[in-house]
Design a protein around this nucleic acid. Structure first.
Lengths: 151, 151
DNA sequence: CTTGAAAAGAACTGCCT
DNA sequence: AGGCAGTTCTTTTCAAG
């Protein structure tokens, strides 16, 4: 499937606010409501739009600390990768697990109530994961999500 | 505002799929449709739910490479931070800009069509940003998003 | 692609317990 | 806080140009 310019404009609009009805989107695109709706359906069935997810303000829920971790494994066999992934995905404070190539093997996004809580998570949960070697941490100060290549 | 157990269950359901109507959510929670709808409204007005955004499969749009970059600035005055942020947010391939504390000053999420395309972005866009010092890269192999503390 | 319409369903409102 | 009933709006599917 090859999205045309109108599809890209549609993705741009939906990326900013996925709650807009097809009628409003259509007006902004110069299309009718059914035509807009059909384009959305086509993008969903092509697997381009995979779903709609919530934006949750974790700070308002009491999770004020977000940390990005780089994790290096000591042993990197196929088995240890799977062991590590199974264990790390079971930690409630872990929001994202990314297997990467480079100086580190995994990049994690971890949240905690405060720094004291994060230390607990790091020492009792992360450092005890199977096969963990070096760990590097970056504490989030501020964050901006962009449209990326959709823009 | 203090979310109760039902609110947490609601957040859990919405986090998995934000397209579910209030009637379906209510059935799963043992609540009526209006009661569920009112809880969603309350969470939105409390700022806990900040919006609904699309999940876009960038690979299907031709962006097969995702790289996580750690960026260290050479000069770190207040002015240079703002200069850097203004310049980096203008790069289409940059999906996320996070100001962090630690070994690096910023963590970026960058997408590109392929590795050759990424090299172009890195050399002509990233390395030429104002004040850029060391850069570290991790290429994404696989990724798993989790519910995090909402679970 | 468009318009127009009709049916189903979801969102929203007011009133009640 | 929750349920019920009713209204408004969106979605979804159709027919016809």
């Amino acid at each position: 499937m090859t999205p045309d310019a109108t599809d890209w404009a549609l993705l741009r609009l939906l990326d900013r606010d996925a709650t807009q009805p097809a009628s409003v989107l259509g007006r902004k695109l110069g299309l009718s409501q059914p035509a807009t709706w059909r384009r959305i359906q086509r993008l969903e069935q092509a697997g381009v739009l995979t779903g709609r997810r919530l934006e949750v303000d974790l700070e308002k829920l009491g999770f004020g600390v977000t940390v990005f971790l780089g994790v290096k494994l000591a042993t990197k066999g196929r088995v240890s990768l799977e062991d590590f992934e199974r264990a790390v995905t079971a930690i409630p404070e872990v929001q994202m697990v990314v297997h990467v190539l480079g100086l580190y093997d995994y990049r994690l996004r971890v949240v905690a109530r405060d720094l004291a809580d994060f230390e607990r998570v790091l020492r009792r949960r992360i450092m005890t994961l199977p096969g963990v070697g070096d760990v590097e941490a970056n504490v989030l100060l501020s964050e901006e999500r962009l449209a990326g290549p959709i823009e």
